[in-house]
């Protein structure tokens, strides 16, 4: 019997983690228990930023990572974190198809293999005050938790503020943070509706979680087991994309039920944000080079 450890960063009840648990039990069933995958959710084995290198170095055979978080390392990882490039699930799937071969090649060079990806629900704008145009965000304290979110803040003239997820709740209560950009799902998980009253469903981007496996660990499996893993991964991908859409609908309803105004962006806000997106795409292309352009052409085709 082969045993794999699969660290993941999100709580056991999160839909990504639930999907992972099903994936692990599918593999166990399909291989008659020959491959046992232990999922370690909630950062109980490795913390989020450590998971990729733990898989790369063989400390864990597989793991779940947020691709866009690794943009600092390689621009292409951040392609699904570019605001307003792919909004909505259909576009996100198209982007994934354009991104996939490049991702697979890079992960292969790093001694890893991509098993499947599942997107988070689309990212919207949470705000204390009503926002009808980007000008309304000027000067408001905007939580910057990634290079992209801090750049957006700069472009709309908001004040980027560093507050860790753990302290977000208190920072919102005291007004240290007045605006935040994340999905409806994360908004429900961190109970943003307790302090912020407006949600604008701008569908800025759909960042993907990727489940990756160490190449040596995968190659050490026999062919039948490898096929079982790939089959279970394909199923998990289909299941995960559907689950994500359902979570999106459900959580937006929860936000509403908790007294939030959940609205589509006004035409002005949408146009303003598209401009931000264009600027950031241009900046990204400068850094990502021909590889980025090729992926973009593939996506726009």
């Amino acid at each position: 019997q082969t045993k794999w450890d699969l660290p993941a960063a999100y709580p056991a009840t999160n839909f990504h983690s639930v999907n992972l648990a099903t994936f692990a039990s599918d593999v166990a069933k399909a291989t008659d228990g020959k491959l046992a995958i232990t999922v370690h959710p909630g950062a109980s084995l490795f913390k989020a930023p450590e998971i990729k290198r733990a898989v790369q170095g063989g400390q864990a055979q597989a793991g779940e990572i947020l691709l866009a978080a690794y943009q600092n390392e390689w621009q292409m990882f951040g392609a699904d974190g570019l605001p307003f490039l792919a909004t909505g699930y259909d576009d996100a799937m198209k982007l994934y198809k354009a991104q996939k071969p490049i991702l697979e090649k890079k992960l292969g060079e790093q001694g890893m293999q991509l098993l499947y990806t599942v997107p988070w629900p689309p990212q919207g704008i949470y705000s204390k005050k009503a926002v009808t145009s980007a000008a309304d965000l000027k000067g408001s304290k905007w939580r910057a938790y990634s290079p992209a979110t801090s750049r957006i803040a700069e472009l709309v003239g908001a004040q980027p503020v560093t507050v860790q997820a753990a302290e977000l709740s208190q920072a919102l209560a005291t007004g240290a943070v007045e605006a935040n950009m994340t999905s409806g799902a994360t908004g429900v998980d961190s109970k943003l509706y307790e302090h912020l009253k407006f949600y604008y469903d701008v569908q800025a981007w759909l960042p993907k979680n990727a489940v990756i496996v160490n190449k040596r660990a995968f190659d050490a499996l026999d062919k039948a087991t490898q096929d079982a893993v790939l089959k279970a991964a394909a199923d998990a991908e289909t299941r995960g994309w559907a689950a994500s859409q359902k979570v999106n609908t459900d959580t937006l309803a929860v936000l509403k039920a908790n007294g939030m105004a959940v609205e589509p962006p006004s035409a002005t806000l949408k146009a303003d944000m598209m401009k931000v997106g264009d600027t950031m795409l241009k900046e990204w292309l400068e850094k990502a080079g021909p590889e980025g352009q090729a992926m973009l052409d593939g996506y726009k085709k």
């Binding site: 989020a48 930023p49 290198r53 790369q56 170095g57 978080a69 690794y70 600092n72 390392e73 390689w74 790093q110 910057a144 990634s146 290079p147 801090s150 560093t162």
Partner: peptide, 15 residues
């Protein structure tokens, strides 16, 4: 040494 080999870069804003 491995961080150097893997190009492991902080995922936060400091990069």
């Amino acid at each position: 040494w491995q961080s150097h080999q893997f190009h492991d870069i902080s995922t936060a804003a400091d990069a």
